[in-house]
Design a protein around this nucleic acid. Structure first.
Lengths: 153, 153
DNA sequence: ATTGAAATATTGCATAC
DNA sequence: GTATGCAATATTTCAAT
């Protein structure tokens, strides 16, 4: 059902590097006709392998220049779903993961400036299930890229 | 030069939620004709506000199920550019940031499984400028989303 | 913003595996 | 059944005004 072959990988690779490529362009790259490509893309979307297409925006340009990673420690034992539900309403939370080790979760925050970041951290700390947080402010973004599609262990 | 008005924000918002929308669709959403939208999108690409368009892929489906955040401590003082240059060749590095606090950088790794992650960590630790690393393995992805485009401090 | 020509997307259908 | 290519149609892009 959700089998992804070599051609699919190459199609995905094309779309990751440019989500607005035409089906004909992709087809030329992978050796298929435009309709065949479209059918595969539709199938990849149906099966959830492709989750959608998005624009890559310069965070600075939109006033999201300040970010931080926050270790979140919860009170007692909290289910991942509950953590998620509590973080989802906070607009500054761009990513969150449960993790091994001392902390329960790592939260990636984006804010417009240090003051906004402080406000976001206060709101984060005021979440009921959260006991305490350890923040690490990002000084500079060195690298940010999609996983290489052709990589294996 | 890099002025971004309300309509630009709404266009960006459309493209973030679906990078393959037609200009006509976006135009209908923001109250502009298709060519007018295209001109703005071209300008946003030129000025670097929009950096491109990409596909959102389910990492599991491509065998990228395992990830970790790694605090990197360098030997002595190292320039951000040098750290970047050293991390760029490692395919498992999907993001990296210099940070405040004890660590010099935070590196986001993606691997196909624990064994691959171990290999990637070994390669990371073998980088000349890196003194030691502290790894935090991700147990589950709770949330991952683009920053809300209409947010301000 | 509208027009019109060219490129692209999308569907139907026949064919091959 | 599954996937493809070709051809026809609908839609979109894009440069002109």
């Amino acid at each position: 059902m959700l089998r992804v072959d070599t051609i699919d990988h190459r199609i995905i690779s094309c779309l990751v590097s440019n989500a607005r490529s035409s089906y004909a362009e992709i087809g030329a790259a992978v050796g298929l006709s435009a309709p065949a490509v479209k059918r595969r893309v539709d199938r990849l979307l149906d099966t959830g392998v492709l989750q959608g297409f998005t624009a890559v925006v310069d965070p600075e340009a939109l006033g999201w220049g300040t970010e931080a990673f926050v270790e979140v420690h919860c009170r007692g034992n909290v289910a991942p779903g509950e953590i998620k539900a509590n973080l989802e309403p906070l607009p500054e939370v761009v990513a969150a993961y449960t993790v091994s080790g001392a902390a329960d979760a790592i939260v990636h925050l984006r804010a417009s400036d240090i003051h906004h970041l402080e406000t976001a951290l206060e709101r984060l700390r005021s979440v009921e299930i959260i006991d305490r947080t350890v923040s690490t402010v990002v000084l500079s973004r060195l690298l940010e890229r999609p996983p290489a599609p052709d990589q294996q262990a």
